Computed example of a mutant assay.
Amino acid sequence: MTALPADVALLVIDLQPDFMPGGALACEDGDALVSPIADLLAERRYRTVVATQDWHPADHASFASQHPGKLPFETILLHAQPQTLWPNHCVQGSQGAVLHPGVDWTVANLILRKGTRREVDSYSAFRENHGPDGTRPATGLAGWLHERGIREVHVCGLARDYCVLWSAQDAMKAGFRVKFHWELTRPVTEANDGMVREALAKAKIAVI
């Protein structure tokens, strides 16, 4: 299969066991992505591949367990912004946090760990969520891609309605053309699919 232009990069978002059936924060059929994404990487069509990895401390502020009386999937205000509370997931060093072993990650040029700061959640590969000072700190990924001459970013992985969507939106804001591998994503909840499609259309992100 023909290689894509050198200025196109692939972002594989959070392909980790905790986001798959049997995991702490499972996306329905999330494990169905492992084989096709492994095949896509094996084709070597993308010369630049970035994999992100949710990597939370055990007492992360987004975990419902850190907020007495609160349950997973409830919403609170964190740093004056709405924050969904999650089950404990992708805890640093746990088996649920590893990049799925069914994929050959040696083809990745960069593995970016996110959500590492206790007080700040981090859906996007490009920016953390709002922190105590009201800003969304950059991860440095945009600069890394720009310096490699990347102009277009394709996204896939988990979860469609959170980390993949936010990464796609922030990639656009960082000046990249963006395409969204819809069939290579799965949501936390399919009820959000309409919202995701509307958000992609509003941002002029192509669905492939």
Rank of each mutant, 00 (worst) to 15 (best):
A3F: 07
A9L: 08
V12S: 04
V12M: 04
P17I: 14
P21F: 09
P21I: 08
A24G: 08
D29H: 13
D29L: 10
A32C: 06
A32E: 06
L33T: 05
P36R: 07
P36H: 05
I37R: 07
L40K: 05
A42N: 14
R45T: 12
R47H: 14
T52N: 04
A58I: 06
A58N: 05
A61H: 11
A64E: 04
A64I: 04
Q66M: 15
P68N: 05
G69K: 06
T75C: 07
L77K: 12
L77G: 07
P82D: 01
Q83P: 04
T84A: 13
N88T: 15
C90E: 01
V91C: 04
A97F: 01
V98M: 10
V98G: 05
L99C: 01
G102S: 10
V103K: 00
L110A: 08
L112H: 03
L112K: 02
K114E: 05
E119C: 09
S124Q: 00
A125F: 02
F126D: 04
N129F: 00
H130W: 08
H130G: 08
P132E: 13
T135Y: 10
A138Q: 07
A138S: 09
G140Q: 03
L141Q: 03
A142E: 03
W144T: 04
L145T: 00
G149F: 14
G149W: 14
C156P: 03
C163Y: 02
C163A: 00
W166N: 10
R177Y: 08
K179A: 13
K179M: 09
W182T: 10
L184F: 07
P187D: 12
D193N: 15
A203V: 11
